[in-house]
Nucleic acid binder design. Structure first.
Lengths: 215, 215
DNA sequence: CACAAATTATACTGGACAGTAGATTTTAGC
DNA sequence: GCTAAAATCTACTGTCCAGTATAATTTGTG
């Protein structure tokens, strides 16, 4: 295969043009397994300390196998960073569909994002810690996604202000702190720790809401 | 010299035993200049991507020179991590001397720590990002310092509760979020950005105080 | 100004690791 | 079950860099 960038099997790799449903899914599955193994190792040992041979070994494959699914080491990292933030972005997008008023929407969305961050803690940590190892293009895309995250969060807060639920003047100035607090969760909460997931999420949401005067 | 760990000139390095005031200071000065150069490069490019030759070049010295003042590369990093947190710890210690009630003490201390973090942003970022590159001993000491930081912050919050200024039941559960928020400052605030230092500090302190119901 | 001790530099080594060329095996259509 | 293509592996290379042995230089002292 030797995917130069995209792994999309160029439309007519299989004999039956555009037909094969299975193969693309298999490719996607393999990619996600590689990312799982890589993120776990990056999380525990760091990006530079993790060799491609280690990733390959964990999957019982060899290094050139990885190169069939990713351009190079930093392409693996870029995919992890991408995954690390996209889900949160999707959750923020979905906030418009939450029933109730703007405060309900904010609270529900914060909780949803907090849950995602707890569940994907390894991706988030790797994302924050290793972003600088990305090449220019990947780094810029990732930064843009992060800016998008902050922007949408700020809009949610602004809506609470506009609808009159929040009277604190500098409420929008609090939204970056909310983003920071959420991003901080994985540093503070280790999976398998004593505190249950729900408690962490609830506490984080509380902290965020109080920042804008909503108990 | 070839400092094996401590650089203390073993008491009678100079001819006049225990007399020389200058030399130890010169050694300390050189060490701090090395740390400055190293932290700046680690901050901008990451620990692994920074070679000892780069650090030496920036100071117009050579690699073996660095080995006269630090055991190895990770010893340099360990010193940066140490510095990155010690000042904050000192500020937390000094909180007992702040006049006024416990709320005044908390507010003043949070502001002081926020200022330190803003001023030492490179150290803080490197500390958070590269801690895993430390060897076991240095990593444990650093983790202990961080735990100490969280503990003292929690005590300050608890005092506000005991003196009756804070009525929120889960106030102490908020203190880790305060620590996280403060640690987040350098990711959000880049020096030379549009927002002035004071504004950032004030906003951060506000956010923290509101978490425990103090506007 | 000689001469020991300290400081700093030159020049090298050894190992690790990302990335690759080419061989081999598996898969799937006929 | 034959054959072409896709998937995967074996074996290698070139580079980079932490760390070091040893040489040169500076500094302080009598």
């Amino acid at each position: 295969m030797n995917a130069s960038t995209a792994k999309k099997p160029s439309a007519k790799t299989s004999s039956r043009l555009g037909a094969g449903r299975l193969k693309p899914d298999v490719v996607a599955f393999k990619r996600s397994r590689i990312l799982e193994a890589a993120s776990s190792l990056f999380y525990m040992q760091g990006y530079e300390a993790t060799t491609l041979d280690m990733i390959a070994e964990r999957l019982h494959v060899t290094k050139p196998f990885l190169y069939s699914y990713f351009r190079n080491k930093s392409d693996i990292l870029a995919s992890i960073c991408e995954l690390g933030i996209r889900e949160s972005l999707v959750a923020l997008d979905a906030s418009a569909d939450v029933p109730g008023n703007s405060v309900d929407r904010l609270r529900t969305t914060l909780a949803k994002v907090a849950e995602i961050i707890v569940d994907r803690h390894a991706y988030i940590i790797v994302y924050q810690r290793e972003m600088m190892n990305l090449d220019r293009v990947d780094a810029q895309r990732t930064l843009r996604q992060r800016a998008e995250f902050d922007l949408r969060l700020a809009r949610l807060v602004a809506a609470c202000q506009e609808e009159g639920f929040v009277t604190i003047e500098d409420a929008t100035a609090m939204s970056p702190w909310m983003g920071g607090l959420l991003s901080w969760i994985p540093s503070y909460y280790r999976p398998g720790g004593k505190r249950p997931r729900e408690e962490i999420v609830e506490s984080a949401v509380h902290a965020c809401m109080r920042m804008i005067g909503l108990g």
